[in-house]
Write a protein that binds this DNA or RNA. Structure first.
Length: 276
DNA sequence: CCCTGCCTGCTG
DNA sequence: CAGCAGGCAGGG
């Protein structure tokens, strides 16, 4: 479900609730969601450890532990992370519970079970999460027009496929790729090799702008986050094309079109985003 | 390069 | 009931 913006929001809400807290025990109801090491070794490493800080990279969320272990979590499509009191009602599809010393719990819930957890020790090379091959963060200064055109400018793939490629830029998913391309006035199906330098420069500006805009719109209190169980994002009313197929374009009132690009539903304005 | 599978639940 | 869902790895 979540892209960079949502994962950052989750981190922002959870970090103050988790920082400094000790994990006293782990409950694993679905061992297969723990991808590395096995569930037993994972539990051994986290038990009795304090969470020192949280980080985000692309769509991955990480918790650093006092013993220098790192826990990484990827929520994929339907993963949720909630910090709740012990008494909070049990939810279906709760696969892992981190029991905290303060009586709260960190719960990993995931209907479709695509989400994964990993753990590695300091010095151990992370060869399993896929994080090593992530491209630059959208808000990093290394994301320049030159970088984009040099990395993707010769590709025959569609520009939307490129934006979804986590090795080019980390953290963009199906929603924000559509929003970015709409803001840039670029048709999602255009082959990357057909973009001119000026268009790459425009993308390099609009990618961080779009991320920053939706990050700001998505700010939520811990109370409201728990009320909506982390499933409702406050920025969705601000989406201009995603989910709006058949409705008028906010710029020119032409009817927004839906198509499928690399297996993903894609919405664009046929008038503002010309194919040629 | 696209395509499928991985899962479950919701919508039309 | 089919079709689809804000992700990704693995296959041809």
């Amino acid at each position: 479900m979540p892209e960079l913006v949502e994962v950052e929001t989750i981190k922002h809400v959870l970090e103050p609730q988790l920082r400094g807290e000790k994990i006293v025990k782990l409950s694993v109801f679905r061992p297969e969601v723990i991808a590395h090491p096995d569930a037993e070794a994972f539990e051994k490493c986290v038990s009795g450890e304090r969470i020192t800080k949280m980080r985000r990279r692309g769509k991955y969320l990480m918790m650093e532990l006092e013993n220098q272990c790192t826990v990484a979590i990827h929520l994929r499509m339907t993963g949720q992370l909630l910090v709740t009191p012990v008494s909070y009602p049990a939810r279906k599809h709760t696969h892992v519970i981190f029991h905290l010393e303060n009586g709260q719990e960190l719960r990993f819930i995931d209907t479709r079970r695509f989400g994964k957890l990993w753990l590695w020790r300091q010095g151990e090379r992370d060869t399993f999460t896929g994080m090593a091959s992530l491209g630059p963060e959208p808000l990093d200064t290394s994301l320049t027009g030159a970088y984009l055109s040099e990395s993707a400018g010769n590709s025959r793939r569609s520009v939307k496929t490129c934006l979804l490629d986590q090795t080019l830029v980390a953290g963009i998913g199906n929603i924000y790729s559509d929003e970015i391309l709409f803001a840039a006035g670029i048709h999602p199906q255009r082959p990357a090799e057909s973009l001119c330098q000026e268009e790459w420069e425009r993308l390099a500006e609009i990618i961080p702008q779009t991320m920053a805009y939706f990050l700001e719109k998505n700010v939520i209190s811990p109370e409201d986050y728990l009320l909506t169980e982390g499933k409702e994002y406050r920025n969705t009313p601000y989406l201009r094309v995603y989910g709006h197929q058949g409705e008028p374009c906010p710029n020119c009132a032409a009817t927004l079109q839906r198509t499928v690009i690399c297996g993903r539903s894609s919405v664009y304005c046929p008038c503002c985003q010309k194919e040629h």
